[in-house]
Amino acid sequence: KVLVLALYDYQEKSPREVTMKKGDILTLLNSTNKDWWKVEVNGRQGFVPAAYVKVL
Rank of each mutant, 00 (worst) to 15 (best):
1 K>R: 11
1 K>P: 13
2 V>W: 10
2 V>G: 14
2 V>P: 14
2 V>L: 09
3 L>N: 09
3 L>A: 10
3 L>K: 09
3 L>R: 11
3 L>V: 10
3 L>T: 14
3 L>D: 06
3 L>F: 14
4 V>T: 03
6 A>Q: 00
6 A>H: 00
6 A>D: 00
6 A>M: 02
6 A>W: 01
7 L>T: 07
8 Y>N: 09
8 Y>I: 13
8 Y>K: 12
8 Y>L: 14
8 Y>W: 12
8 Y>Q: 13
9 D>Q: 03
9 D>C: 04
9 D>V: 02
9 D>Y: 05
10 Y>A: 01
10 Y>H: 05
10 Y>K: 01
10 Y>F: 09
10 Y>Q: 01
10 Y>M: 01
11 Q>Y: 10
11 Q>M: 14
11 Q>F: 11
12 E>T: 10
12 E>Y: 06
13 K>A: 14
13 K>F: 05
13 K>V: 09
13 K>H: 12
13 K>N: 13
13 K>Q: 15
14 S>P: 05
14 S>L: 08
14 S>E: 12
15 P>N: 11
15 P>C: 06
16 R>A: 12
16 R>M: 15
16 R>Q: 15
16 R>L: 13
16 R>W: 15
17 E>A: 06
17 E>H: 08
18 V>D: 00
18 V>K: 02
18 V>F: 15
18 V>Y: 06
19 T>E: 05
19 T>G: 11
19 T>V: 03
19 T>R: 07
19 T>W: 04
19 T>Y: 04
20 M>Q: 02
20 M>W: 01
20 M>S: 01
20 M>G: 00
20 M>V: 14
20 M>E: 00
21 K>C: 06
21 K>V: 09
21 K>M: 11
21 K>T: 09
21 K>E: 06
22 K>I: 11
22 K>W: 04
22 K>A: 11
23 G>N: 09
23 G>R: 02
23 G>V: 00
24 D>C: 04
24 D>A: 09
24 D>N: 12
24 D>Q: 11
25 I>R: 07
25 I>F: 12
25 I>N: 03
25 I>Q: 11
25 I>L: 09
26 L>R: 01
26 L>N: 01
26 L>Q: 01
26 L>S: 03
27 T>W: 13
27 T>V: 15
27 T>Q: 15
27 T>H: 09
27 T>S: 12
27 T>F: 14
28 L>A: 02
28 L>F: 03
28 L>V: 11
28 L>W: 02
28 L>R: 02
29 L>N: 03
29 L>V: 09
29 L>A: 03
29 L>D: 02
29 L>R: 04
29 L>C: 05
30 N>P: 03
30 N>K: 09
30 N>I: 09
30 N>Q: 14
31 S>M: 12
31 S>E: 07
31 S>R: 07
31 S>W: 09
32 T>H: 14
32 T>M: 14
32 T>I: 11
33 N>Q: 13
33 N>T: 06
33 N>M: 13
34 K>Y: 08
34 K>L: 11
34 K>G: 09
34 K>P: 14
35 D>W: 13
35 D>Q: 13
35 D>K: 14
35 D>I: 13
35 D>T: 10
35 D>H: 12
35 D>F: 11
36 W>N: 03
36 W>I: 03
36 W>T: 03
37 W>N: 01
37 W>M: 05
37 W>P: 02
38 K>M: 12
38 K>E: 09
38 K>W: 13
39 V>P: 00
39 V>S: 00
39 V>N: 00
39 V>R: 00
40 E>T: 07
40 E>N: 06
40 E>S: 12
41 V>D: 07
41 V>C: 04
41 V>A: 10
42 N>C: 05
42 N>T: 10
42 N>G: 08
43 G>Y: 07
43 G>P: 02
44 R>M: 11
44 R>Y: 11
44 R>H: 14
44 R>K: 14
44 R>N: 09
45 Q>F: 14
45 Q>K: 12
45 Q>V: 12
45 Q>N: 12
45 Q>R: 08
45 Q>G: 08
46 G>K: 02
46 G>A: 03
47 F>T: 04
47 F>V: 08
49 P>Q: 02
49 P>V: 02
49 P>G: 01
49 P>R: 04
49 P>M: 03
50 A>Y: 03
50 A>H: 04
50 A>Q: 08
50 A>R: 14
51 A>Q: 13
51 A>Y: 12
52 Y>V: 06
52 Y>R: 05
52 Y>K: 08
52 Y>I: 08
53 V>Y: 01
53 V>E: 00
53 V>Q: 00
54 K>D: 05
54 K>S: 12
55 V>T: 07
55 V>H: 06
55 V>D: 05
55 V>R: 08
55 V>K: 11
55 V>G: 04
56 L>I: 07
56 L>C: 06
56 L>R: 03
56 L>N: 04
56 L>F: 12
